[in-house]
Computed example of a mutant assay.
Amino acid sequence: MATPPLPKVDRPAAEAAVRALLLSLGQDPASPELADTPSRVAEFWSERLAGYAMDPAADLRPLPGVLAPVPVILERIPFVSTCEHHLAPFEGHATVGYLPGEGGTVGLSKLVRVVQAYAWRLQVQERMAQQIAEALETHLRPAAWGVQLVAVHTCMAHRGVKTPGVPVRTTLLGGTWAQNPPPPFRG
């Protein structure tokens, strides 16, 4: 199920919230070092949440003409997302691929845009993988598909167990690849 879009970032409200946060942390938001911080943070979050305005369906339109049904796999697509539980970043790479079926083939950059559309939202890795997979299934109707995300979560590195550098792998496969995945999805 797709995440509902959030309203556009209310910059004045975001800036006021950052000022309040700084005050609650015992900091002076009017100091020379912090005076521009509320504006910078509001702009940061506007960029960080840009995925809510992106429509993966618009990117997953088939190319014209008949193309050979060969596997299309993009490996190591970099992404940065934001953990919805801690508002902390997690980053890694995605491998996304499909074996064209009745839905046709799309341009390679379109797969990158689908990863970005879901990464640039408040997110959890498992849902992000599912959303990418559902977008492929729904709009391309491939004979097979695969999504693998490998990421390091700063919420795990900087709080709780404080264990940095532990990658988390999430893999979803469908169609004929569910039983016999190609090498990029095997490990």
Rank of each mutant, 00 (worst) to 15 (best):
P7L: 07
P7M: 02
P7K: 12
P7G: 05
K8Y: 01
V9L: 13
V9I: 15
V9Y: 07
D10W: 11
R11I: 13
P12T: 11
P12S: 08
A13I: 04
A13F: 12
A13Y: 13
A13P: 05
A14W: 00
A14T: 00
A14F: 02
A14Y: 02
A14V: 00
A14K: 03
E15L: 06
E15Y: 00
A17H: 02
A17P: 07
V18S: 08
V18F: 00
R19M: 05
A20R: 14
A20C: 01
L21K: 09
L22G: 02
L22K: 02
L23W: 04
L23H: 09
L23Y: 00
L23P: 01
L23C: 10
S24I: 13
S24A: 13
S24W: 15
G26P: 08
G26H: 14
P29S: 12
S31F: 03
P32T: 09
E33S: 14
L34C: 12
L34F: 05
A35K: 08
D36F: 02
D36Y: 00
T37I: 05
P38N: 12
S39W: 08
S39E: 13
S39F: 08
S39Q: 14
R40E: 07
R40D: 08
V41K: 02
V41Q: 03
A42D: 06
E43H: 11
E43S: 15
E43Y: 01
F44N: 08
F44L: 15
S46W: 11
S46C: 08
S46D: 10
S46K: 11
S46M: 12
E47R: 10
R48H: 10
L49H: 05
L49W: 02
L49I: 05
A50K: 14
Y52V: 15
Y52N: 10
A53W: 00
A53E: 13
M54I: 09
M54F: 05
M54G: 01
D55N: 13
P56G: 06
P56V: 06
A57K: 15
A58Y: 14
A58G: 00
D59S: 04
D59W: 15
L60V: 04
L60Q: 05
P62W: 04
L63A: 15
G65H: 04
G65E: 06
G65C: 04
V66L: 11
V66N: 01
V66G: 01
V66A: 04
L67P: 03
P69D: 15
P69Q: 12
P69S: 04
V70E: 15
V70P: 02
V72A: 11
V72H: 08
I73T: 13
I73E: 08
L74E: 09
E75S: 14
E75L: 05
E75W: 01
E75T: 15
R76K: 14
I77D: 03
P78V: 10
P78C: 09
F79L: 12
F79K: 07
F79T: 11
F79D: 07
S81P: 01
T82N: 10
C83Y: 07
E84A: 01
E84Y: 08
H85K: 10
L87N: 13
A88S: 12
A88H: 00
F90H: 06
F90E: 05
F90N: 07
H93W: 02
H93M: 06
H93C: 14
A94L: 07
A94V: 09
A94N: 03
